[in-house]
């Protein structure tokens, strides 16, 4: 049984301009101790996916149309409870993109870290506070006792993100959801934060769901990758499969747009022309067809999910939502891995 399982999630938002179909049928599973990266460009529904099943999107205007989310088999859709106990903060810890605005400006760091301990673990204020200092130390913040008495505006961005991690891990959750945790940080700090997460994962054995649009972060952290486009998962597989045996044209586009340090002369970055489809009226067929170099007439209809034959027996499942993998399709799409 998977630790966390999300199935057929559909989320919509009612706005003045109409209904935005932000998430259109997302499935994924996350096993214990594993790291799942959710990749995609801005507005593809990455954050909405995790924030909706944890109950963090405002409803209304948001709406979970259908779908399910279970944690160890218990239904938790919308941030529910297991055995009458809150899931958020206890079983699922979360950190966000902008640590500068994600902490309460009028409360000391220590108090904010101690808060879930007081609420979920029933600790007294003083014990919780002492534990908060330990947690700050664990996230390698120097002078943790002094730092715990300070307010967020006295911290730098990287320090705040460490404090956020300390807060998210205070109740030793089984899942850590990190929603673009390094986007707002300097590159050097990014690496430190990622290292910290890896180390803490090794110590605690928690699973991490990492949302990012940075393929470098994915390569460094992830076991499994979910590529999202226009509210749907277009490719799913192990990090090696997705990177080296990419089976969806969009993944190829993403890779081409990523800078590398393998300097084979002056290699130009290849942008993906066009923009994602309007999610007020998502296309019936493949959302990527309008930008896809391999677009076919078949792409007017919704592409099925195809399994790609694995390279090795112990590899992860590898799936792609693209007509190119249809058995009758003999178009030679350069770069698209069609299985072995």
């Amino acid at each position: 049984m998977a630790l966390l399982e999300v199935s057929d999630l559909h989320v919509e938002f009612d706005t003045y301009g109409g209904t935005v179909h932000a998430v259109r049928g997302v499935d994924f599973r996350l096993d214990e101790g594993q790291t799942l990266a959710i990749v995609g460009e801005s507005g593809c529904g990455k954050s909405v996916t995790v924030q909706s099943f944890t109950g963090l999107i405002p409803m209304p205007p948001g709406r979970i149309v259908r779908g399910g989310a279970t944690l160890r088999g218990h239904d938790i859709l919308g941030g529910g409870r297991i055995d009458g106990k809150e899931v958020r903060g206890r079983e699922i810890g979360m950190i966000f993109q902008d640590p500068m605005t994600s902490l309460n400006p009028t409360m000391t760091i220590g108090d904010q870290i101690a808060e879930p301990l007081q609420v979920h673990a029933g600790m007294k204020r003083r014990t919780a506070h002492a534990r908060a200092v330990e947690l700050l130390e664990m996230t390698r913040i120097p002078e943790p006792a002094k730092r715990a008495e300070q307010y967020p505006f006295e911290f730098s961005g990287g320090m705040l993100q460490r404090a956020m991690i300390a807060m998210a891990l205070s109740c030793e959750p089984s899942v850590l959801i990190a929603d673009e945790p390094t986007t707002a940080l300097d590159v050097t700090i990014q690496a430190q934060i990622l290292d910290l997460m890896v180390d803490l994962q090794r110590e605690n054995g928690m699973a991490i769901a990492l949302i990012t649009h940075d393929l470098g972060v994915v390569a460094r952290m992830a076991d499994e990758v979910l590529v999202m486009y226009a509210g749907q998962v277009v490719e799913r597989g192990s990090v090696d499969d997705v990177f080296y045996r990419s089976a969806h044209p969009y993944t190829l586009g993403l890779k081409a747009a990523m800078p590398t340090n393998q300097s084979e002369g002056e290699q130009d970055l290849q942008p993906i022309d066009g923009s994602p489809p309007d999610l007020f009226a998502p296309p019936e067929g493949c959302g990527y067809a309008a930008r896809c170099p391999f677009a076919m007439e078949a792409c007017q209809g919704p592409p099925p999910v195809y399994g790609i034959r694995a390279a090795a027996a112990d590899a992860y499942d590898h799936e792609s939502r693209c007509w190119l993998h249809h058995e009758d399709c003999d178009i030679a799409a350069e770069g698209v891995h069609k299985g072995e």
């Binding site: 022309d273 066009g274 923009s275 067809a289 309008a290 930008r291 896809c292 170099p293 391999f294 677009a295 076919m296 007439e297 078949a298 792409c299 209809g301 919704p302 099925p304 999910v305 195809y306 399994g307 790609i308 034959r309 499942d317 799936e319 007509w323 993998h325 249809h326 058995e327 009758d328 399709c329 003999d330 178009i331 299985g339």
Partner: peptide, 26 residues
């Protein structure tokens, strides 16, 4: 999983290429 796990196949779709126009997508 085997190759070509068709879930929505009703007849064989057409795989004729469609030229994409970048300007149109913009």
């Amino acid at each position: 999983m085997s190759e070509a796990d068709m879930t929505t196949g009703t007849g064989v779709p057409s795989f004729a290429p469609v030229p994409t126009s970048a300007t149109e997508a913009q």
